[in-house]
C-alpha cells in the first residue's frame, strides 16, 4: 500500500505546484490582457455568429480573415502598421462583398471564394515586393493573443458595447430578417440597410480579433459557439445568449488549458470550443426533432 500512497502524494504535490504556476502566470499583465481579449472576442463572435450561421454567412469571416492578409501586405508596402490597416480594410471588404452579392446575385459561398482566393494571390505578390518581412507571417496566420495591448482591449470593449446595443435594440428585426426576408420587407424593414450594418459590424469584430487569433482561426470564434448553442437551444433569445456565453466560457477554459499545458493560446481556445460542440451533440436534442 505504501508505494501507492506515495504516488498519490507526489501526484497531489505536482498538481498543486502546477496550479500555483498557472495562478502566478495569470498575475502577469500580458496574461490578464490575453484572457480579457479572449473573453471579449468570444462574446462578440458568439453573439454575431448566431445570426451569421442562420444567414449562411459562415464563410464570410473565413474569407475576410484570408483577405485581411492583402490589407496587411498593402500596409507593409505603404509603411503603415497592420493594426492601422486592418479595420479600414475590413469595412471596405464588407461593403464590397455586400455590393457584389446584390449586384451579381451569385451564390454567397462561390462569390466569397472568388474574392478571398484572389485577394490571397494579390497579397502574396505584394509581399514579394516588400522583401524581407520580419514582423512574422506566422503571427498573422495564427495570431498572438499574448501580444494584445491596452489600446486593443479598449477598442474591443467599445466594439462589444456597440454590438450588444445594436443586437439588443434590433433583436426582433434581426429575427424576422433571418426567418423570412420578404415578410420583413412587407413590414417596412429596410433589409439591405440592416444587412449592410450587420456585415460591417461583423467585419469590425473579425478585423479587431485577427491580431490575437490570427487569420486562419478567427472564423472558429464566429461559427463553433453558435453551432453548439443551436444544438442546445429551443428559443431564439436563448440561442443568442447561449452562443455568446459559450464563446466567453471557451475562451476562459482555453486560456487555462494553454497555461497549464503550455500550449499555443488561440488553438487551445478553438479546441475547447470544439470539445463543447462535441459535447452538445451528445446532449439529447428533443427540440430539433420534427413531429
Amino acid at each position: 500500500m505504501e508505494p501507492s500512497l506515495f504516488d498519490i502524494d507526489t501526484g497531489t504535490d505536482m498538481i498543486s505546484s502546477e496550479l500555483s504556476r498557472v495562478i502566478e502566470l495569470f498575475q502577469l499583465p500580458f496574461m490578464q490582457r490575453a484572457l480579457i481579449s479572449g473573453v471579449l472576442t468570444g462574446l462578440m463572435g458568439g453573439m454575431l455568429g448566431s445570426f451569421t450561421i442562420l444567414r449562411q454567412l459562415s464563410f464570410f469571416s473565413d474569407a475576410l480573415g484570408h483577405s485581411a492578409l492583402l490589407g496587411i501586405s498593402l500596409g507593409l508596402l505603404l509603411g503603415i502598421s497592420p493594426t492601422g490597416v486592418l479595420l479600414p480594410f475590413s469595412v471596405v471588404f464588407a461593403l464590397l462583398v455586400t455590393y457584389l452579392l446584390e449586384k451579381t446575385q451569385l451564390w454567397t459561398d462561390a462569390l466569397l471564394n472568388v474574392i478571398y482566393s484572389s485577394s490571397l494571390a494579390i497579397a502574396v505578390i505584394t509581399l514579394s515586393f516588400v522583401g524581407q518581412y520580419k514582423g512574422g507571417l506566422n503571427n498573422l496566420l495564427f495570431g498572438d493573443i499574448l501580444a494584445v495591448r491596452q489600446a486593443d482591449l479598449v477598442f474591443s470593449i467599445v466594439l462589444l458595447v456597440i454590438c450588444t446595443v445594436f443586437i439588443g435594440l434590433t433583436l426582433r428585426t434581426q429575427m424576422l430578417i433571418s426567418l423570412h426576408e420578404p415578410l420583413a420587407i412587407a413590414r417596412g424593414i429596410s433589409v439591405s440597410a440592416h444587412r449592410t450594418a450587420f456585415i460591417v459590424l461583423l467585419s469590425l469584430v473579425v478585423g479587431i480579433s485577427i491580431k490575437a487569433i490570427g487569420v486562419l482561426l478567427i472564423s472558429a470564434f464566429v461559427v463553433i459557439p453558435s453551432c453548439a448553442a443551436r444544438l442546445l437551444s429551443s428559443t431564439f433569445t436563448q440561442y443568442v445568449v447561449l452562443s455568446a456565453t459559450i464563446g466567453a466560457v471557451s475562451a476562459v477554459l482555453g486560456m487555462l488549458l494553454s497555461a497549464w499545458f503550455n500550449l499555443p493560446s488561440g488553438p487551445s481556445i478553438v479546441v475547447t470550443q470544439l470539445t463543447i460542440f462535441l459535447g452538445t451533440i451528445a446532449f439529447p436534442r428533443r427540440r430539433l426533432r420534427a413531429s
Binding site: L179, H180, S233, F236, Y239, R287, A290
Partner: peptide, 11 residues
C-alpha cells in the same frame, strides 16, 4: 423558412 432556425411559436 429554414426549419433549423430555433424559434418558437410564441416568438
Amino acid at each position: 423558412f429554414d426549419r433549423r432556425i430555433p424559434i418558437t411559436v410564441e416568438e
